[in-house]
Design a protein around this nucleic acid. Sequence first.
DNA 1: AGCTCTTATGAATCATTGA
DNA 2: GTCAATGATTCATAAGAGC
Lengths: 289, 289
Amino acid sequence: MEVIKKLPTNKIICGDCQHIIKSFPDNSIDLIMTSPPYADSRKKTYGGILPDEYPDWFFPKSAEFLRVLKPTGTFILNIKEKVVDGQRHTYVLEIILGMKKQGWLWTEEFIWHKKNCYPGKWPNRFRDAWERCLQFNKEKKFNMYQDNVMLPVGSWSKTRLKKLGSMDKIRFESQSKSGFGKNIANWLDRDMVYPTNVLHLATECSYKDHSAPFPVELPEWFIKLFTLEGDIVLDPFSGSGTSALAAARLGRNYIGIEILENYCEASRNKLLNVEDTLFKISSTGAKYD
Amino acid sequence: MEVIKKLPTNKIICGDCQHIIKSFPDNSIDLIMTSPPYADSRKKTYGGILPDEYPDWFFPKSAEFLRVLKPTGTFILNIKEKVVDGQRHTYVLEIILGMKKQGWLWTEEFIWHKKNCYPGKWPNRFRDAWERCLQFNKEKKFNMYQDNVMLPVGSWSKTRLKKLGSMDKIRFESQSKSGFGKNIANWLDRDMVYPTNVLHLATECSYKDHSAPFPVELPEWFIKLFTLEGDIVLDPFSGSGTSALAAARLGRNYIGIEILENYCEASRNKLLNVEDTLFKISSTGAKYD
DNA sequence: AGCTCTTATGAATCATTGA
DNA sequence: GTCAATGATTCATAAGAGC
């Protein structure tokens, strides 16, 4: 496959990422944020890679990710090992060790604490309430914009933020982009602290079937932390398009790759809505108090 | 070294655990709960095992742990990899893989979320607010007393008698054709729930006792979960004796092994106080509600 | 608008049954 | 026998409904 000069940004591409990315130029992506299909012991389901075969399935892809990532870029891999025959499987550990052999630096492991994890009771195990968000880098010096994910001190703002609907969040982001809006000023007055490497987010419980593996806040957080506006965010296993949605909301250029056509369609529809809203906000100059 | 018949329970033994444990009989310990000395790039400090050498330092010890653990017993290893040269080191991953080769089952990984972790700021890294508590077992069937660590139910059901949602009823009725059984009792009047594999505990921040690696609540939780009164709890890297203290408080028999004499002394003093108090309580018949 | 109450559901895991 | 499908168990959250 011929290497292209211009990346196909702000698109959901339908296909196998291992093949598609081969056409991307070296050192061109600022952030890769993805949650690959989980290993599964059932053979027939989509993405049902057997746990034992998972590392070998993954390594050719991570090698391409390494090639296209900018030296200052970051790769965030959201993953969790399944229980197989009463034990945690080791494929995630093997992936970390194998990626280091490929040349990746394993910089950090963030914990996503799933506040509303799946229920259940078993004689020898509690509910699984966390997943790994592994941070890999190409170089020891990488871009990190810590001030963009600072948290207000205390709980006063938690209730306030929680009350905002998703549309309000879009408005909030568009306001903070342009840097005005009196709400922002109010919020900035408060004391802010840096977060830790533990993220507390609830999974999305949607009424409809637009289920996403992770809440949009998860990619949002990493996109704000590791990219600036106009940077390029790649999700090679785009699924329902949550990472792309987060990137679009935040004014980053997204590239989503997804192998299943119906997921691609659903993602594109979601993204059209967001982009339409963002355009309207910016063109009417609407303000919100 | 001769194998002894009677375990030296309720003692802090001063010495190298790898040597001491050789005298313990097979299949005699109910729970091993420990936090080994951390790997350290500075050689001269106590426990300053180099990260690269850490797995080989650890494996002879974990082999002995496997031998002395009862088939129904559990080994909880509290550990976290250090950052070395900008990366998370891989010695913990290597330890998991190596222990599996020794015959251990890697059953689960609990997360200890440190709510008030140390402050600090670095340009490319946030504060580290979590540690691993790795659960290893000898057999797939092991003792686990889940009811002993139940938690008050979340605030979502403030009503004393929470009613079942209709979907829950449908699920219930489709599941049990025999009508109402004892399970209904589990649902009504529910005010306690089972925890998850994420533990939220504050770290102890005392200036004087710099040595305590974890708060006493951490070993307490695992001791309650995996042992009964009268069972034997071993901490082969006893340090300031936090695990032994937790075991003593809970009426379990402890064995602490610690290589540094001054830590042993400090532990023994702490434990004397506790045992004295416990003795007084039992002999006066005092009760607490 | 603000509450409370109801309802649906989610990257789960184990035991049992069926092929 | 091995492997795949089904049933049983369970809790925090958000959207909707009602007041």
